[in-house]
């Protein structure tokens, strides 16, 4: 099935309570699949096409405040529209899943795959000091698997999670193993707002605190949460790094391209390897720093003007040269181009 369809089916099977979205290429199949699959008949899951992206994210805000497992999806321009809602959700410490199937920008850009939303996804996106947990699937299988993982992390940390995919993975078909149907939760966490029973005080969900001292305390709490996430939730995959002199750092579609580039480079006697970040926030900085002790060079391969490369540079801290390579505007780099670039820098 297509990557987009895998997200949709996995959401039903993960026991999601609601999906709120608005169509945009290249991710419309998520909403289309969910509409056709009629999950309200299978599990009671609500699927709704909102009147706009802004409405959809605020429906997610509402659903999440009620303790429900809710999600939305869009592509780059639509994700920009959702940023206000996302920062409110982060500020209210609510769990939810946001899927971004990235296309080329800025503005309306193109409808072809890109990875130019890395800064937006990992550094905030909306205003205020906050982070999303960002997962980067690089196969249709991971598009399915990361839905459940996202919900787990979102509820564990009461934090919005973004799956940062791209048009290629969304539109591509691959073999996928789907997990069995999970039942939807019958209970909600105690922080959820569900009305005021006589037995407890009412729960208020807000991202507003006019007292700066209390707000600073809250900011400090967020910082310690993000630090805990940095400590415990870093995920990555290494390929042929054991003896690699040259290490590609790439996620999503670019990581797949680099897997092939490694084969091509090694056939020419160049010892190349790949570190594929699976979480972009938290970023595998510690591991990259370790690897920079024995590698000669790193190349961050992204379909952007060079965004993740900044995090690679910070991780390596000047120890070895770090370069960026990538195509833009919806063009996917080919493995041959990656190898040619590497050779030009050796």
């Amino acid at each position: 099935m297509k990557g987009n369809e895998a997200v949709a089916e996995a959401a039903i099977r993960a026991g999601a309570d609601g999906y709120f979205g608005y169509p945009i290429t290249p991710q419309s199949e998520i909403l289309e699949y969910l509409m056709e699959a009629k999950p309200h008949e299978r599990t009671g899951m609500v699927v709704l096409q909102a009147e706009s992206e802004v409405a959809a994210i605020n429906m997610v805000y509402g659903g999440a405040a009620c303790g429900k497992k809710v999600m939305t999806s869009s592509s780059s321009p639509g994700i920009s529209l959702k940023q206000e809602g996302i920062t409110y959700i982060a500020g209210a410490e609510l769990p939810c899943l946001i899927v971004n199937v990235v296309r080329g920008g800025p503005g309306l850009g193109t409808i072809q795959p890109a990875q130019s939303d890395y800064f937006q996804a990992t550094k905030g996106g909306g205003h205020g000091d906050y982070h999303l947990i960002v997962l980067a699937p690089s196969s249709v299988q991971e598009m399915a698997d990361f839905v459940e993982l996202s919900f787990e992390l979102a509820f564990k940390y009461r934090n919005p999670v973004m799956m940062l995919s791209d048009g290629a993975i969304g539109q591509m078909m691959e073999k996928v193993w789907l997990k069995p149907q999970k039942e939807r939760s019958k209970t909600v966490p105690e922080w959820a707002t569900t009305g005021k029973p006589p037995t407890r005080e009412r729960v208020i969900i807000t991202s507003l605190d006019l007292d700066p001292h209390r707000q600073e305390k809250f900011n400090e709490k967020l910082v310690s949460k993000y630090n805990e996430i940095r400590e415990k939730e870093v995920r990555f995959e290494e390929l042929s790094c054991e003896d690699a002199e040259y290490i590609f750092v790439a996620y999503g579609t670019s990581a797949r391209v680099c897997m092939k580039a490694i084969q091509l480079a090694r056939a020419q006697g160049i010892k190349a390897g790949l570190l594929r970040p699976i979480t972009l926030f938290p970023f595998p900085s510690k591991r990259l720093n370790e690897l920079s002790g024995r590698a000669r060079m790193m190349v961050s391969v992204e379909m952007s003007a060079g965004q993740m490369v900044e995090d690679v540079m910070l991780s390596v801290n000047g120890r070895i040269p770090v370069y960026h390579f990538g195509r833009m505007g919806g063009i996917v780099t080919t493995p041959e181009e990656v190898v040619d670039f590497l050779k030009s820098k050796i």
Partner: peptide, 9 residues
């Protein structure tokens, strides 16, 4: 396992 789904040759 399939590496790059996008290829030139």
């Amino acid at each position: 396992r399939i590496s790059s789904p996008i290829i030139r040759n």
